[in-house]
Amino acid sequence: MAHDSKAHDAALYRHWMTLLAWMQDFAQERGLIFEKVADFPDYIYRMERAYDLPTTIMSASLNTSTGPLFVAAVSPRHTDLKGVSLRLMGGSKHWHLHADDAGLLEGKRPFTRQRLHVILEGALTGVGR
């Protein structure tokens, strides 16, 4: 079975943009701080070449007033097996998501806005907010 990596990569970065929007919405709803952590290396070092990914943000965090709560990152373009990683700060809980045409997947289960909210609400409860 042939795998169209260019189409798969485009889907991954499109879904990454959706995840970033969900994080920004949650931050606004709950009074958290959404912060870009890092740009893609090929954006930083592109010199005079055009940049064709839909965002420069490779990783972002949600922070409380006392520090980081949650970090999300997507693989850079040059890696072979691309995905999205999610990590709760101060613990060992993390998730690895992969792209499908319809969205990000947590294993075979769709990773939804509601799933992100459940994770983040649990983290906020854990830090006493």
Rank of each mutant, 00 (worst) to 15 (best):
M1F: 01
K6S: 13
K6V: 12
A10M: 03
A10E: 03
R14N: 06
M17G: 14
T18Y: 00
T18D: 02
W22P: 08
Q24T: 09
A27S: 13
Q28F: 01
Q28M: 03
E29M: 07
E29I: 09
I33A: 04
E35V: 01
E35S: 06
A38F: 08
D39F: 13
F40P: 13
Y45C: 03
R49A: 11
Y51E: 07
D52L: 10
I57K: 00
S59A: 11
S59P: 08
S59I: 07
S61P: 05
T66H: 06
T66E: 05
P68Q: 07
A72W: 10
V74W: 09
V74R: 12
V74Y: 13
R77T: 13
H78W: 08
S85V: 14
S85E: 01
R87W: 00
G91R: 11
S92G: 04
W95T: 15
H96Y: 13
A99P: 12
A99S: 11
D101N: 14
A102C: 02
G103N: 06
L105V: 00
E106F: 07
R109N: 02
R109D: 01
R109V: 03
P110E: 01
R113G: 08
E121H: 14
E121G: 01
A123T: 07
T125Q: 15
G128R: 05
